[in-house]
Amino acid sequence: MNTSTPHIEVMRSQLGRARGLGAGQSGTAHWWAERASAASLLPLSTWFVVQMFRLGGADHAEVARWGAKPCNATMLAAVIITTFYHAQVGLQVIVDDYVHGKAHLPTRLAVKIVTSLLGLLGVFAVIKLVAGGSSGK
């Protein structure tokens, strides 16, 4: 666009062009998802920090034994899922705010894909620990 001389490019009224650019009708759901996951993460991450005190400097056998307990595995999976869900929702807002034009959609998809894959990796690691697949090897 030629920015030096102001001009109108499309023969549509300015109101007509602006219409439909307002709220996308789904903003509150996103906002709530961010808050609900944030509030859930308060007790979950507190649990995780406490567990890190139990595991600081632990060797593989100790970690494997810890991760194989059903209660620990449940909490661990909950921490992982909630963390990456919250990260996904939060990073999307950052991308929406700072990435414009053609790069916006690919960046947004990349955020979704990467956070989902990381969450899945964590969950499958937990499943493997519960199944005891790593003990004794």
């Binding site: 593989h60 494997a64 990796l121 964590g122 690691a125 937990v126 620990l129 697949g133 790593s134």
Partner: peptide, 9 residues
Amino acid sequence: VFWLGAAAK
């Protein structure tokens, strides 16, 4: 998550 994955591996 990578740390946990290593523990599982």
